[in-house]
Each structure stands twice: as structure tokens, then as C-alpha cells.
Amino acid sequence: MTFIDEVTAWRHHLHSKPELAYQEFETSDFIASKLESFGLKVHRGLAGTGVVGSLSWGTSNRAIGIRADMDALPIHEKTGAPYASLVDGKMHACGHDGHIAMLLGAASECAKLKGLEGNVHFIFQPAEENEGGGKRMVEEGLFKLFPCDEIFGLHNWPTSPLGTYVVRPGPMMAAFAVFEIKVEGRGAHGAAPHHGNDVLLASSHIHMALQSIVSRSMPPQQAGVVSVTSINGGTTWNVLPEFCALRGTTRWFDEPIGDLIETRVIEIAQTIAEAFGCTAVVSYDRRIPVTSNNESAVEVIKRSADRLGPALTRVDEEPSMISEDFAFMLNARPGAYLFLGSGTSSDDPGLHSPFFNFNDAALPLGISLWTKLVVEKLSRPS
């Protein structure tokens, strides 16, 4: 069995045993066991199930961190793979199993390196999917326990071809908030709507008006998203309910735009509800800040990728409106995040699809990139 075959087997094992946010107990056991077998110093317990493996050369205080996420999603797998999820209703639908395997492979390779000077911390983070594991690791002292001059991370990217990568200075991914609008009024019989306040009609108008925020309240040069993703109200055919709830998400890159979107969501909901004789209570929660890359750290990734020659080439893409809680680490330390192309065709299932399966052909590229990056950053000064 070759080394890549072994890493692939790790990935398949992890894929078959998915665990949700803060429940990555078997996953963290597996990671810690592998890191210890490579000879790394292992620390466990940050954010509950987090694992950090460290390597040191010489006496320098220079240090970098490389992060992979560990959690799966509450999705029923439909890939039909021989190593498909053994846990009903849970699957690695975002490729975090591949991220783990790549970083473990890099840790194994780096443990064999000689002639470096400094420290590298391999950070395995729980709860990336909406639960803020990155924020919690930072709050619990990640960079106090493991000082890092720079921090790096990646995500497999099925919309870019295998053998390519995307990185850029400044915003890579958007900030993310969620909202809930609770519209309340007086219910009535469906045959006598004039006896009540139609919360469903009010909610429909709120939904439509929210779509005007990006098109009419924001400067056209700026980017933003306002999406209502759930509307719940009413239980039967002939009763106008007293309550309706709208839920959704917003995205932005620039903080003033984030402020504007939040203000307008609240204003629109409350004023339209009032116009229909109803009330609206708005809960608005900013979950994740912008994932923004440091320019010098981006250059480190480019130089590291150049060491791979034609096997990995950079392509340009606009910043993505998805969000990533690696942003909390980048807010605490300079660094950069990249997308590693993993696509094979235009028909590849997207991230979070029940048909998604990480492309194993990307494993050697990720391992090589991380290993070259460690060499790039920690080679002894000449």
C-alpha cells in the first residue's frame, strides 16, 4: 500500500463515521492517535473535541498554524459509495473528511523533514458548520497555547477543476448573519378576514420588500445577499393564524453594508407589519465575520504552490458569498484561506448535497501544498 493509498483509507474511514458539531469524539480519537504515531506532541480539549499536533525544529520561536475542520452535516447520504456513512441522517457532505486526511498526511510528511527552524501546529477544529468552533477555540486560548505568526486553511472546491487553486488578498468569503421575524396579529375565520389582521399577507409583503434592500438600499457597486429561507404560519384551510415566522440569512463583505442590511431588515419588518395592523419582533444574529486574507500570507501560498510546478495552478475567482468560521482565526492572527480545486466535471454535486463525495485525487495535492508551505515558512535563513 502506498502512502496515498493509506491516506485515502483514512479518508474513507472518516467518511463512514460522520459526527456532528461538538460530537466529533471518535474523529478526534482517530486524529490524535495518528498524530502521536507520527511523533507529534498532541494537545486535546480546545472547544471540547479539538486536537492540535505540534512539531518543532531548532530553537526559533517562529511558528505557523494549519487548520482543518472535522464536523459532518445532518444530511442523509445518497452517494452509494462502498464507504458511505454508517450513521443514518449524518454525512460528510462538505469534504471535511478530506481536509482531515490531507492535514494528517501533511503532518506525517513534515515529521520526516530535517533542517527546518521553528514550529508548526496542525489544528483540527470542531463545529465549523454554523456552530462557531473556530471562535470557541480562539476564545479558549488557541493562540496563547500555540502562538502562530500566521494561520492557514483551505476548502476543497468542486466548482474549480482538479489541479487548480483560488486565493486572493482581502475578502475570500462573506460575513454571515441569520434573522427571524415573528409577525403577530389577530386571527380570524378564512371567510371573514376583516375580523382579523392577516399575518400571512403582512409576512408576504415583508418577504417581497426585503428583496429591495440589495437592489434599492445598497450602492450598486457593493455586494450583499438577503434571503428568506423559511416561512411558517397557519395550520389549516379556513383559519387565518395569529402568528407567522420568517427566517433567513444575510451576507456581506464590508461592515457598513452589514450595518445597513441589519437596519433595513428591522425597519422593513416592523413598518410593514404595523401597516397591516400587526407587530413584528425581529431577532438578528451576526454569526461569522468576513474571511479576509492577509496579502503577505497569500504570497506564501502562491510560492508554496509554485514549488509543486504544473501540478497546481492558480485561477482567479470572485469572492464567495458562503461563510467560514476560519474568519475568527484570521481576525486573531494574519493568514490566508484558499480553495483547492477538486472538480471533475460541470455535473459534480455541490457542497452540502446528499450526493457529494470528496474527490480523493485532491489528497496528494493538499498534502504536498501544506508540506511545501511548512518548508517555505520554516526553512533555515541562509
Rank of each mutant, 00 (worst) to 15 (best):
S283A: 03
Y284H: 03
Y284P: 01
D285R: 15
D285N: 14
D285K: 15
D285T: 13
R286N: 04
R286L: 00
R286P: 05
R287V: 06
P289T: 09
P289F: 04
P289E: 08
V290D: 07
T291K: 12
T291H: 12
T291A: 13
E295Q: 12
E295R: 14
S296F: 12
S296H: 10
V298Q: 06
V298L: 06
E299M: 09
E299D: 13
V300Q: 04
V300P: 03
V300T: 11
I301L: 15
K302G: 10
K302N: 14
K302F: 08
K302I: 13
R303K: 09
S304N: 09
A305F: 12
A305I: 10
D306H: 15
D306W: 11
R307D: 00
R307H: 01
R307S: 03
L308I: 07
G309D: 03
G309K: 08
G309W: 05
P310S: 10
P310M: 06
P310H: 08
A311E: 11
L312G: 14
T313M: 01
V315E: 11
D316K: 13
D316N: 13
D316E: 14
D316C: 06
D316Y: 10
D316I: 07
E317G: 12
E318F: 15
P319W: 14
S320H: 07
S320R: 13
S320I: 07
M321Q: 01
S323R: 02
S323Q: 02
S323I: 03
E324P: 07
E324T: 04
D325T: 15
D325A: 15
D325C: 15
F326V: 07
F326W: 06
A327V: 08
A327P: 05
A327L: 08
F328C: 05
L330S: 08
L330F: 10
N331W: 07
N331A: 12
N331T: 07
A332E: 08
A332F: 04
A332M: 07
A332K: 04
A332D: 05
R333E: 03
R333V: 02
R333T: 03
P334D: 01
P334F: 01
P334V: 01
P334L: 00
G335V: 05
G335N: 05
G335R: 06
A336Y: 03
A336K: 02
A336Q: 03
Y337Q: 03
L338F: 13
F339D: 05
F339V: 03
L340D: 12
L340Q: 13
G341S: 04
G341P: 02
S342V: 03
G343A: 06
T344V: 02
T344C: 07
T344W: 00
S345T: 06
S346Q: 13
S346C: 01
S346F: 10
D347V: 02
D347L: 08
D348V: 09
D348H: 11
G350T: 08
G350C: 09
G350L: 11
L351Y: 12
H352L: 11
H352P: 15
S353R: 09
S353D: 14
